Amino acid sequence: MIQQYIIKKGDMALQPCNLSIGQYEGTSIYKYKEESNVIKDRIHKIIDRSCRFYGSSYVFKKEDTMRITGICSKPPILFTPLFPTYFFPTHSDRKEENTWINIHYVQSIRTLKDKKSKVTFVDNQSMIVNISAHSMQHQYLNGIYYYYMMDRAARVATFDPESPIDYTKSQLNIYEALAKYSSFENK
Rank of each mutant, 00 (worst) to 15 (best):
T65M: 01
D93G: 12
H91Y: 14
I47G: 09
F83Y: 15
S92M: 04
R49M: 01
D93H: 07
K74R: 14
I77V: 13
F88V: 09
T99K: 02
V38S: 01
F88G: 10
F53S: 04
E34F: 02
K61W: 06
K45I: 08
I46A: 02
T90W: 00
D41A: 10
K40H: 05
L82M: 03
W100P: 08
T85H: 11
D64C: 09
E63N: 08
K95T: 10
F87L: 03
G55F: 10
V38R: 02
T99N: 08
P76E: 02
S50W: 03
P84I: 05
H91W: 14
K45H: 14
S56V: 01
S50L: 09
K74M: 12
E63L: 10
S56H: 04
C51H: 09
D48E: 11
S36Y: 07
K62G: 00
Y54M: 10
T85W: 08
Y86S: 03
I47R: 09
T99Y: 10
M66F: 12
S92T: 05
F88C: 09
S73I: 04
R94F: 09
D41E: 08
I71A: 08
F60N: 15
F87E: 02
I71C: 15
H44W: 09
N37W: 13
H44R: 11
P76N: 06
S92Y: 02
